[in-house]
Design a protein around this nucleic acid. Structure first.
Lengths: 113, 113
DNA sequence: CAAATATACAACCAATCGGTTGTACGTTGT
DNA sequence: ACAACGTACAACCGATTGGTTGTATATTTG
C-alpha cells in the first residue's frame, strides 16, 4: 500500500468519524442540498457546518456544484464503496487466518502432514 | 439512531482513521500477536503502540487474552463487519435517491402522474 | 532471590480538531 | 443602487490526538 492511498484512507475514515458529518453525508447521498439548507438542521453555526462539508469534500465523499449563489452538495457513492472495499479486504485477511486454522485441524489427505 | 450507537460509530471510524492502527488491525486479524511483537514492526516507542492497541480494543476491533506475561491481541471480524454494514446502509440511502429519480424519469404507467 | 521481559499508565508536549465570531465577496431581488 | 442572502475563510479557543519519557507491576528465567 502506497503513501497516497494511506493518506486517502486516513481522510476517508477521519471524515466518517464524526456523527454530524455522517448525518450530512446521509442527507447529500439522498439528494442535493445547499450548504445553508444543511446547516439549518444542526444546532451550530453556519461556519461549523461549512467546515464539516469541506472535510467531506476533501475526502471525496461529496462534490459541490454551483447554482446561482447556492452551492449544491451531492454525496459520492463511489467513495463510500471504496471505504467498504477496504473493510472487505480486512475481512479477507481474517478469512485467510481461518483457512489456515482449518487446514491445521482438518489436514488435506492429499497433503503430507 | 441512538446516542450509544453514534458513540460506537465515532469510536470505530476514529480507530480506523490512523494507518498504524489499520496496520495493527490487519496483523491481528491474520492471527494473534503480543503487544511487543506488534510494537517491533513500527518506528515508534512501545508505549505509543500500546496506546494504539488500546484504542482498537476500546472500539471493539480487537480483544486481548493473557498468556503468561504476554497479552495476545486478536482482531474481531464482527466489528469490522458492523462498520461495513453502516456503509451499506449509506449506500442504500443513495439507492433510494436513484429510485426516486428513476420513477420521475420513467413513471409507473399504473400510477397517476 | 535477582535480573530480564511484557505490559500498563501517568505526565507532558506540539499539532490537530471542532467549535466560535468576524470579515469579505459574489449573487439575487426590490 | 442597495439590502439581503449564500458562501468562504481567517483568527482564535479549549479539548483531543499521537507521540514522548519515566515509573510501577507482574511474570518468567538464571
Amino acid at each position: 500500500m502506497g503513501e497516497e492511498s494511506s493518506d486517502r484512507a486516513d481522510a476517508l475514515f477521519h471524515a466518517l468519524a464524526d456523527r454530524t458529518r455522517r448525518d450530512i453525508l446521509r442527507r447529500v447521498l439522498a439528494g442535493e442540498h445547499s450548504v445553508s439548507a444543511l446547516a439549518a438542521n444542526y444546532d451550530m453555526s453556519f461556519a461549523a457546518v461549512q467546515k464539516h462539508v469541506a472535510v467531506l469534500e476533501k475526502a471525496g465523499l461529496l462534490t459541490k456544484r454551483r447554482s446561482g449563489r447556492e452551492q449544491l452538495a451531492s454525496g459520492d457513492v463511489a467513495a463510500v464503496r471504496s471505504v467498504a472495499s477496504m473493510l472487505t479486504e480486512l475481512e479477507q485477511v481474517w478469512r485467510g487466518r481461518i483457512a489456515r486454522i482449518d487446514r491445521l485441524i482438518t489436514p488435506d489427505p492429499d497433503q503430507e502432514d
